[in-house]
């Protein structure tokens, strides 16, 4: 492996500070930070996380600035406020 030449991107997930890397999606930054749980399921409230990683399954829904987005298709930005998702 070559060295990682990307800059750090710091954002918040549910109040916790997370350091990702430029070009990461929210889902990849959180997975790399050891956080696979992204939301609770709609009626059972069970923990759910990334599943398809290509924008198809909508399991990784999170809220960014009040908007529901897919964590696997949304790239992290410095200072982004991400909250665990609910339903769209």
């Amino acid at each position: 492996m070559t060295a990682d030449a990307r800059g750090a991107v710091t954002f918040r997930f549910g109040g916790r500070e997370v350091r990702g890397r430029e070009g990461d999606t929210i889902a990849m930054a959180l997975w790399a930070a050891g956080e696979p749980v992204l939301r609770r399921s709609s009626s059972l409230g069970a923990p759910r996380g990334l599943f398809c990683n290509m924008g198809v399954c909508y399991e990784c829904l999170v809220a960014v600035d009040g908007r529901t987005v897919r964590a696997c298709t949304t790239v992290v930005r410095e200072g982004m406020q991400v909250e665990p998702g609910g339903r769209p």
Partner: peptide
């Protein structure tokens, strides 16, 4: 369960993001 993903998801992780 979180941590159970599709086979494709793992490929995207490694080959698409270096995770």
């Amino acid at each position: 369960l979180p941590g159970v993903v599709t086979a494709g998801a793992l490929q995207v992780m490694v080959r698409g993001f270096g995770v």
